[in-house]
């Protein structure tokens, strides 16, 4: 039986990388006494899969992982047991039971939404709802992506699903493709936006929080994004 667990990651935990978060949860699950399933062999491993890796330095309100369990108690019991074992900065938000045919967390990811704020003194002058509209209205939105071997010009426009500024002008809301094939980093979108305005973002100017991770219950042409936990149920 598969459980989908949603958690948040804040504060100093943002400095803990993806692999270490996995190792952290492996231990937390043991401490919490969750009846997780193990692989066989000399070094049994917990059957566990994480949705979308979160970069170091980012916070999140919408992280997901799936675990396989041997027996069921209740959503509340698992949530309480895990929250009894969390370090300061990380909280389990929901636990859902998945149907037998649900795809795994990582393969299911289609999109993610982010809120982007600016560190004090780093909010750019040009930031406005209009300039964000202009940014999105371009024919194509290109940046040069550097890899180890080459440089390639990349058009990110098809992968931006939403970009807006909230009313007080402090926070940018961004929804982008987060699938394993086309994952678009919010910092790359901001780089393009700054470049369009003849500027370069300071590495430490942005405070980025992943707000939610989505799957697509529509199709490629007419996507319908729902939080990853949508397909599960309380039990």
């Amino acid at each position: 039986m598969k459980l989908r667990i949603k958690f948040s990651k804040h504060g100093v935990l943002k400095f803990i990388g993806h692999l270490d978060v996995m190792r952290y949860f492996q231990k937390a699950i043991r401490r919490a006494g969750i009846d997780i399933a193990y692989s066989s062999g000399f070094s049994p491993h917990q059957v566990m899969s994480f949705a979308a890796p979160l970069g170091v330095g980012l916070e999140s309100n919408g992280e997901y992982m799936d675990i396989e369990v041997n027996s069921l108690t209740s959503s509340q019991q698992v949530m309480d047991a895990l929250n009894g074992q969390m370090a300061d900065g990380i909280r389990v938000l929901e636990v859902k039971l998945l149907g037998d045919n649900s795809g795994n967390a990582m393969a299911s990811v289609a999109a993610a939404s982010y809120s982007i704020r600016f560190r004090e003194g780093h909010r750019p002058q040009f930031l406005s709802a209009e300039s964000l509209n202009d940014f999105c209205g371009q024919q194509e939105i290109t940046v040069t992506k550097k890899t180890k071997r080459s440089e390639a010009v990349f058009d990110m426009k098809p992968y931006i699903y939403g970009l807006s500024l909230d009313e007080d002008g402090s926070t940018i809301h961004l929804t982008v493709d987060a699938s394993s094939a086309n994952n678009l980093k919010p910092s790359l979108v901001m780089k393009a936006y700054f470049e369009m305005n003849g500027s370069i973002p300071d590495d430490n100017a942005l405070l980025i929080t992943r707000e939610e991770t989505y799957l697509n219950i529509g199709n490629d042409i007419q996507p319908d994004f729902k939080p990853l936990g949508y397909i599960g149920s309380d039990y």
Binding site: G11, V12, K27, A28, R31, Q85, A87, D203
Partner: peptide, 19 residues
């Protein structure tokens, strides 16, 4: 500061807060 922690290798070495 975040700025320093983001520029050094393995910032988790310096933040404490372990279980």
């Amino acid at each position: 500061s975040d700025e320093i922690l983001m520029q050094v290798e393995k910032p988790a070495r310096y933040i404490g807060n372990e279980i």
